[in-house]
């Protein structure tokens, strides 16, 4: 007790810095952040990394990797590297947008009813539980079939709409455990508005859960987007990792032995997914000391 009192009071920014330092001491966090950083840089600086237009069909089709085409060419005569590099833009932005949509929905569907309680909570949490058990991908495919090939934005929103339930449940139970704490009761008695209590008092105290959930949702978003596009339910004319795999299947890449066509985009999806998963574990571990293994 006494030693704790003797510690100098930390300013807010110092506390934040030490959290960041503690976070990046974890090799998982470092690995995850590095992977994502590389892919994001690749997406941003795509035009600098390749001199070819990803849509240009000017090359000889199905060439193996060579000095001119580091990852060969597609069956339609496009440069695979150019498609891979530019594809990162669509795949990452749709995946992350989908993850953010899911997280936003989860915050509302998880926190609000837990805070309000009563019949409202019963109805919403039952709905959340139902959405949790209704299989997401088949639902996504069916919706994708009805709206048939729309823009990337709609796809991101639809993925978000089918993938929020798990996170909402986690946030709900955490909110439930926080609403009866003394400081919340005090804030309520002090006349703070509901919005103030939810967003300024409760939310900051479960920020790590929200961030971990966001990482997980982004992983889901990237995989779901790749799956939809692979099946031709996205915008097949846009360049993304998923559509590369769609055209690879359409162009019989397997039959033609064009491994350079379908290996890179799938590997990229897997690596980005791993990056998000590693960050998710690292945040989880930071928030939940019981998961730290070396104690």
């Amino acid at each position: 007790m006494i030693t704790r009192l003797r510690q100098p009071l930390m300013s807010r920014s110092m506390a934040r810095m030490s959290v960041a330092r503690q976070f990046f001491r974890d090799p998982k966090a470092r690995a995850g952040a590095s992977i994502l950083f590389c892919f994001v840089m690749m997406a941003i600086f795509a035009p600098l990394l390749t001199s070819y237009n990803p849509q240009s069909t000017a090359f000889i089709p199905l060439q193996a990797p060579s000095a001119h085409h580091w990852l060969g060419t597609t069956g339609n005569g496009q440069d695979v590297l150019a498609q891979f590099v530019f594809g990162a833009r669509a795949s990452l932005s749709v995946g992350i947008l989908a993850g953010m949509t899911a997280t936003l929905i989860a915050i509302f569907m998880g926190m609000l009813p837990a805070y309000r309680g009563g019949l409202f909570d019963l109805v919403v949490s039952t709905f959340t539980n139902i959405m949790l058990v209704v299989p997401g991908l088949p639902l996504l495919l069916v919706i994708g079939a009805y709206i048939h090939q729309t823009g990337s934005f709609v796809i991101a929103v639809v993925i978000g709409l089918t993938g929020w339930a798990w996170q909402a449940r986690v946030l709900r139970s955490q909110t439930l455990s926080l609403v009866s704490r003394d400081y919340i009761v005090a804030a309520r008695l002090g006349g703070a508005s509901d919005a103030h209590i939810i967003f300024r008092e409760i939310l900051p105290n479960m920020l790590s859960l929200v961030v971990a959930g966001l990482m997980y949702s982004c992983l889901y978003g990237i995989l779901a987007e790749a799956s939809l596009e692979f099946l031709g339910l996205g915008n097949i004319n846009a360049v993304s990792w998923g559509t590369m795999l769609y055209w690879a299947t359409q162009g019989a890449a397997l039959l033609n032995g064009a491994w350079w066509w379908f290996v890179p985009p799938g590997l990229a999806v897997a690596l980005v997914g791993t990056g998000f998963a590693l960050l998710n574990f690292a945040v989880d571990r930071l928030a939940n000391p019981r998961l730290r293994e070396n104690n």
């Binding site: 299947t249 999806v269 980005v272 998000f276």
Partner: peptide, 22 residues
Amino acid sequence: TTFTAAIPYFWLAMLLVYFLGY
């Protein structure tokens, strides 16, 4: 297994079909 869990099912299927099948 963090990596294997992030691999898209259909892509892994394509790899297996290509390398072990074809």
